[in-house]
């Protein structure tokens, strides 16, 4: 953050964004007093571009572009360590969920680590939409294809095969159309296409 942020503009333009995050996450983001307890205990903060407390600060100040494009929100592993220790009762893990969801809905372009995390989530959910359950092999192959590293984790796959820990065919849920409908209706409500 080398350029100075114009806070008057960001607060004016992105007031709706701040409200939206508060409302959708159900979290009182304005309560945060920037003590840093979340950052202190975050297991993945070392890999983030912005530490967790700063992600929240950016929300407070309406720095929408920066926060939605950040690597940090995708690197959050959802462990809720921050949530359990926050002295202000802000569930930061929920805020992170909400920011990822907003980034996705708004079609924010992602790169690097964030792109990989998002891609993995998509591949995972695609197999759930198709089968009603996770299909691990299908997910891995699809992910490798999309990240153009066909043989990534091939050794792992082999080792799992010998321990009978991978199935070639997907396990399928009985009324799996029900599950596909869930995806369909969520998209309908959130207003985006597959």
């Amino acid at each position: 953050m080398s350029v100075a942020f114009n806070l008057t503009n960001s607060l004016k333009d992105n007031f709706g964004f701040i409200n939206n995050v508060s409302k959708e996450s159900g979290q009182p983001v304005e309560q945060c007093y920037q003590c840093g307890k979340c950052t202190a205990g975050c297991p993945v903060a070392f890999a983030m571009d912005y530490p967790p407390h700063r992600v929240l600060r950016m929300v407070q100040l309406g720095l929408k572009e920066n926060v939605l494009r950040s690597q940090a929100i995708w690197l959050c592993a959802g462990c809720s360590t921050c949530t359990s220790r926050c002295p202000r009762n802000v569930d930061l893990a929920q805020v992170m969920d909400c920011l990822r969801s907003l980034a996705k809905r708004e079609g924010v372009p992602l790169d690097d680590r964030a792109r990989d995390v998002s891609l993995f989530y998509d591949c995972f959910l695609n197999t759930v939409e198709d089968n009603g359950k996770l299909y691990e092999l299908g997910m891995m192959l699809n992910y490798n294809l999309k990240t153009r590293q066909l043989f990534k984790n091939a050794n792992t796959g082999l080792a799992m095969l010998t321990r009978n820990k991978i199935k070639f065919l997907p396990a399928k849920t009985k009324n799996r159309r029900d599950v596909a409908m869930i995806f369909q209706r969520v998209r309908e409500l959130e207003g985006k296409a597959r």
Binding site: G36, C38, T39, A40, C42, A45, F46, Y50, P51
Partner: peptide, 11 residues
């Protein structure tokens, strides 16, 4: 002791 330095912005 693990903590954060919020001025530094890191752990």
């Amino acid at each position: 002791v693990k903590g954060a330095d919020t001025l530094l912005g890191c752990q």
